[in-house]
């Protein structure tokens, strides 16, 4: 019993929290930007899978790690553009289109991966991102290991939260994006183009999702294997609701979620036999559903979320 509590005070747990949270932060942020402009992007699971493979493949073929992330972002943006074109100007069902994008992106990912590497019993590996100790800060006992010895993309994720929050809440561009999610007709009346704003938001959001996926193959693990995203995309969609569509709360949600995940991973080793490991693995998904239920009353949904906008039509 004491061991279960001791885990909470180990620096390795808190270091793992930030590591586990990183893909969730990028994914949740991406989904949040899309939804703030009024578009639900259920392509997230497939786009993260695609990002994971593309970044890994770029590095495996001799590219740099950052090049890998950039290529992932570009590919994610392209699938975002596809989702945006289908759902914004054409106004197709965002639910079904998003699922279609997920099915398409993940099957294309597996196809390309198999095509490039026909047979492999154990997946080939790359040299992943190494922890980047921040001079001075990383020497602080406990906090140094927990917070300041992360890989570079983790710091980038925190930066992305700050930048997104600033742009969304403090700039005219952010106001336009938020307004498009609330009332596109009012945006039109201001002389702005809601269609373009939505397309832009979905492309940028999808690029972030792909970067989130790429973290899995370039930092968490060092190889790609099918189904490695494991529903993280769906968890991100739930986290956006949990965060009430606010970037700051999204960071909080992702960290809280990662804490539970990191804790259950360590608890598996402490708890003596009898408890099936699958029960621990269920925790993230159960928590997501619980988060949705708890926040359902309080969450303030963007008013025009999932409502297609057609000029001159009400």
């Amino acid at each position: 019993m004491m061991e279960a509590v001791d885990i909470l005070f180990s620096a390795s747990l808190w270091g793992a929290v930030l590591r586990i949270a990183t893909p969730l932060i990028f994914g949740t942020l991406g989904a949040l930007i899309c939804e703030r402009s009024g578009v639900l992007n259920l392509g997230i699971e497939g786009i993260m899978t695609l990002g994971a493979m593309v970044a890994w493949m770029t590095v495996f073929q001799g590219g740099g790690l950052w090049t890998g992330l950039l290529v992932a972002a570009l590919c994610g943006g392209m699938f975002g553009l596809l989702h945006a074109v289908l759902t914004v100007p054409l106004g197709l069902s965002q639910h079904v289109t998003g699922l279609g994008i997920t099915l398409f992106a993940s099957s294309l990912t597996y196809y390309i991966y198999r095509l490039a590497l026909p047979v492999s019993s154990s997946p080939p590996t790359i040299e992943p991102f190494q922890p980047l100790a921040i001079p001075g800060l990383s020497d602080i006992p406990f906090f140094g290991e927990a917070l300041f010895s992360q890989t570079a993309p983790t710091y980038l994720a925190i930066l992305a939260i700050v930048v997104t929050a600033y742009i969304l809440i403090r700039t005219p561009l952010g106001l336009a994006i938020r307004m498009t999610g609330e009332n596109p007709h009012a945006v039109e009346a201001q002389g702005l183009n809601p269609t373009r704003i939505r397309i832009g938001a979905v492309v940028v959001g999808s690029a972030l999702m792909a970067i989130g996926g790429s973290f899995l193959t370039t930092a968490t693990f060092n190889s790609f294997f099918p189904t490695m995203v494991q529903g993280r995309g769906w968890v991100c969609i739930a986290l956006v609701v949990f965060a009430s569509w606010r970037p700051g709360k999204a960071l909080l949600g992702a960290l809280l979620f990662a804490l539970f995940d990191a804790y259950q991973l360590r608890l598996q080793h402490v708890v003596e036999g009898g408890v099936p490991y699958q029960l621990f693995l269920m925790v993230p998904y159960v928590l997501s559903i619980v988060a949705l239920i708890v926040m359902s009353r309080r969450a303030r949904v963007p008013q025009a979320l999932m409502a297609p906008y057609r000029k001159g039509e009400r």
């Binding site: 596809l82 289908l86 079904v96 289109t97 699922l99 279609g100 994008i101 099915l103 398409f104 993940s106 099957s107 294309l108 597996y110 196809y111 198999r114 095509l115 026909p118």
Partner: peptide
């Protein structure tokens, strides 16, 4: 690669 089946089916949906 037999994943082409999933590709055909998912593009058909879109």
């Amino acid at each position: 690669p037999s994943f082409i089946a999933d590709v055909i089916v998912s593009i058909s949906l879109l």
